[in-house]
Design a protein around this nucleic acid. Structure first.
Lengths: 128, 128, 128, 128
DNA sequence: GTGGTCTAGACCACA
DNA sequence: GTGGTCTAGACCACT
């Protein structure tokens, strides 16, 4: 995770997405402390101000909570996390479809292709 | 397009994928000349030898043709390009599903989510 | 086997041919391990990268299989080896005829000469 | 032609063969002067004594003639050259067949393969 | 100019 | 150890 950022989205948005994914992946659990803005700035080689902005955004969504003098923590409110999970799913799907469209695949190709792939069992994660 | 390469895949593979996508997107059309190995090497800031390996790989798949002293060109054989299109679709879907699984989404969530998204018309590309 | 390479063909091609011949001669049997790229590089006094390209080429033809950290092995797939045998026969014949033409022998001289030679029994390998 | 010698045959034999081929190819014509033993020794990077021996052998076969103080010349006697042509044909065929046998090809495979090749017209030298 | 080959040398991943 | 990748730099062949 020492990469830099690539897409045309603002960096703070990308960083927020990345943190959301880490939460979903379980790399960050409810109640966990996020790295300090300075620390995170170094880790992802980004200006601490940008990290600050990211944390503010996430706080606005209720995903993290800032406690003065202690740091920033992943919320323990399941409801919020659940909602985030749903929203991120939408975003991922949206991005995926957009990318496929750009490469000229039709909605039908995408849907049929996905179904075929899932049925073929190449994914093997039928539940979680 | 001055980025560098990121995943753990070899550069020549990533570059090949990128070129395939450019063909699908229509940024490179059948018969078009690709940048020379040296030129492309500068563009993506890798060694010309690495670019050449990419071109050789693509040539092996029949996607490009090289003409000594002239350059490397996108094939005009529709059949080959068609096959590439299918293969790339599979790859994209596979990567997408893999990523979703990593974030804890089940096959069903993915499929239902996709269908809902497509039906909602947010994609608006029903054909191409 | 300490010779170097001579014709105007690229070294990696000549080395591949040499290995194919060794397989046909039975000096290398299906399942046998080839010398490591470095070892072979020393044996034939070429750069290990050149040897690797040879191995990669042979792997592309299905003639050898490489196992990371273990080495490169002659395939055990008889079908592939059989096909290789046929192709190499064509190549040998082609080269022979080409050489004879260069020395001014006509097709007829070649064919009649060969038949006479085989009938005379000087070869004594009517079967194998 | 700056190569060295490779097979297990004595060098003077190989050199003699090479010169015979040059005559057949027309690179050396009847009456032409061969390089001096010293000169030839340098050209093929071989000891002049070895060249001397080669010339002696060729002279024994009547293929070249040595004229004191002038040098060594290709004979102008067509009969001798004709005979050499026949003998060389035999040798070439013999070597070819021997090589094919070593790789496990049967007489029949060789003959059928040759006929097929000549008929396919890939050689295109039906006369000379 | 173009692609093609080869080398020397470095570093990585797998076992 | 093994193969795999990548670089830098050289030289060749084609046009």
């Amino acid at each position: 995770m020492t990469d830099t950022f690539h897409s045309s989205q603002p960096i703070y948005t990308q960083l927020a997405e990345r943190i959301k994914r880490q939460i979903l992946r379980g790399e960050l659990k409810p109640g966990d402390k996020l790295p300090s803005v300075r620390e995170m700035g170094i880790q992802v080689s980004v200006n601490p101000n940008t990290v600050q902005r990211t944390y503010r955004e996430l706080e606005g969504m209720g995903i993290v909570e800032t406690r003065r003098g202690q740091g920033t923590f992943v919320t323990e409110e399941q409801e919020v996390l659940q909602q985030m999970r749903e929203e991120l799913k939408q975003e991922e799907i949206s991005q995926f479809v957009k990318g496929m469209h750009e490469m000229g695949y039709s909605d039908q190709e995408i849907e049929v292709g996905l179904q075929a792939f899932l049925l073929s069992g190449k994914g093997t994660n039928n539940n979680d």
